[in-house]
Nucleic acid binder design. Structure first.
Lengths: 210, 210
DNA sequence: ATGATACGTTCACTATAAGAAACATATTTT
DNA sequence: AAAATATGTTTCTTATAGTGAACGTATCAT
């Protein structure tokens, strides 16, 4: 054993998503898709190349399909895996969440270089993280290392002017209204270059899916 | 045959994603994950309950694992399926893309009710879609039906005041600096309520993963 | 009703994935 | 260096997924 269970636990937590595998009613789901299109087992058989009997058994959870069989299914039915694995959409019907943040009411996270204000922090399971940032840094040297995190980031200047330093490009000056989109695992750092501290709005993606 | 191929074609298109099934180097990917954690086949065997030999064969693409085997893999390794299927990160090593949009240089899409300005439209494969919108609508009645799309949306008021109408909530007045995050498949619509046309910045998620 | 057709399930057989142990190399220990 | 241990591959067996044919039942036509 070269790695401890603690490490595994850490990995699970780091992943940020429940690593649970639901009963995965794959058969049920397949049948649902099939019936939605008014297809017979023969139809699906022709499309996928899998035997009618095989399909029947999969639908009734009598066998656990091979991965290559699953591939035939998703190509043949023209769906993608998430669709096939998606539980019979429990949420979709009722997804009407919202999270209002009045100006200045965000959650503040001060650091020496930045003063972040998280904007929709009340909503837990979301795919974007929006925040407003007052850029306190005045010199690139104030950063001991690159800011870097998974995913992508969109940034727009609300007030003042900033210099955007990135790992792979020349520094870039951004003025009020300018915006930029970049892969945020590329090191990056902001400094204010205007009289006042600059203010930027950023939105980051959460690190999951490809 | 109870359904035409046209229907199937339509389904593929409707899905909005290329229904291609890449060679799916599942074995390669598994090995990558394993080595990244400095795990041996025995380690993974203990975690997943699969035999060492089986794992070896999966890694070398000598067999196509059963779906139940895949489940054991993802639970045992504490990952989720997308992670396991993600192609051996072709980008990750070199992901330093960026897309700058100077103020006013976005791509304009005028409609009767809104005037959108797409902000980082040069970058194709991205997970968020940012755009600035001038809200032309002055009456809720100008909308013939709800605006509605997959995914989630973040919105912040840059100028003026707006009224946000949503399918499941009372209308909400938002002033300069206010922001809101919501599920965008819930119907929504904006109207300006200030003297000038209001301007908002929105960021939508792309419609993929669950 | 009677036969014919269409669908899904079950059976008997074949193909293949999963498991245990032997094998082949590395790597470490003494 | 030799022995011991660790790690990944290969072999052989067994469990099970996949197939085609037979079966049961429902629907339709005559």
């Amino acid at each position: 054993m070269t790695a401890s269970n603690d490490q595994n636990a850490a990995l699970r937590i780091a992943s940020g998503r429940k690593p649970f595998v639901e009963p995965l009613r794959l058969g049920e789901r397949l049948k649902e898709i099939r019936l939605a299109q008014h297809w017979t087992l023969d139809d699906v058989s022709q499309r996928t190349g899998l035997a009618r009997s095989t399909l029947s058994k999969i639908e009734n959870d009598q066998i656990s399909p091979t991965f290559s069989a699953v591939q035939k299914l998703i190509t043949g039915l023209g769906i993608d895996l998430p669709q096939l694995l998606a539980p019979p959409k429990p949420q979709s019907a009722t997804s009407g969440r919202r999270d209002l943040t009045r100006a200045g009411d965000g959650q503040r996270h001060p650091t020496p270089t930045y003063e972040h204000e998280l904007l929709s922090w009340q909503l837990a399971q979301k795919r974007m993280i929006p925040f407003k940032t007052i850029v306190r840094a005045r010199q690139f040297e104030e950063f001991t290392e690159w800011v870097r995190h998974d995913g992508e980031e969109f940034l727009i200047v609300l007030d003042g002017d900033i210099m955007l330093y990135t790992e792979f490009y020349e520094p870039l000056t951004l003025h009020h209204g300018d915006s930029i989109y970049f892969d945020s695992e590329m090191g990056h750092a902001l400094v204010s270059v205007s009289e006042e501290d600059a203010v930027v709005l950023s939105v980051c993606t959460r690190g999951d899916s490809p």
